[in-house]
Design a protein around this nucleic acid. Sequence first.
DNA 1: ATCCAGGCATGCA
DNA 2: TGCATGCCTGGA
Length: 307
Amino acid sequence: MIPFLLKFHERYDLRQTLECGQIFRFQKHNNDAQIYYIPLKDRILKIFQKNDHILEITSNKNQDLKPILSTFFRLNDDYQQIQRRISIDSLMGKILAATNGLHLLKQDVFECTISFLLSQCSNIPRITRNVNNLAEQFGTPINFDNQQFYLFPTREQLLSVSEQQYVEMGFGYRAKYIYNFVQNTPNFIKKAINLENPSKNHSKNPSENHSEILTGIELNQALQNIQGVGQKIADCVQLFGFGDLSYFPVDTWMRKFMIQHYFNDKKASIKAIRQKGQDLFGKWAGYAQEFIYHYARSYENLNNSKS
DNA sequence: ATCCAGGCATGCA
DNA sequence: TGCATGCCTGGA
């Protein structure tokens, strides 16, 4: 199979990109640190970091691979310009140097929403376990590269799953959020899913075509109308799922970092911190957030005894 | 053993 | 509007 080459003008660091916390479902190759597998929508990607600028990608399915990869890897982002804009002071310069090569990914909206619904009051290992359990129990198995993988379940595959089953999977009080989201998926989400999977859904349901494609504040409000989605999760889905780079999700890590470095008021509210992020970094606040988040977790001891 | 975690919904001032 | 509290589970 001929690998598909993705060439980046600036540096691309696959490991940082996948391990920075923006995405939960990826898998390291057993004995090659340069290779990762990612289940993406209807296929499995095998990604090899050939050098600082080239990714080699093979998949079990090559149909529409080019546009799918272009979207997922955000090939149209001007990384250099983004870095320049975010480099507002020496601290950010230091962070940009440390995270150079970390890129955002544009994830599947359905999977992204469920993943972040599961994220509240949890931690990355547990969230990863939860989403992998969902895939293994309800997703389509794919044999690829002599290994068994599982696609993230489609909405249709989850429709028959009960709230109790989610509870038994250890989702806790998040079970009802997932159940409700699957059963009552808002039209703007369905629309996003259909647009992202053009090969499916040839049969259009006319009743679902009234809704406009939401953007900006309207999209953020619509996301927060989903049970279990507040400001933070809405921002994550808007950034990672819908690809709106101007959003700046503030979780406890971001809060600690921002207060330490950019606030005199040590009790600054989430709302104020979120606003500050957008004021400082403008339309690329989302990239800034991810650089900071990864840096803060990896290199800075924010009064939290983790290494 | 408590305590709190990549928040949210609810109730109360 | 802003703040306190409970929520499932599980790891420290």
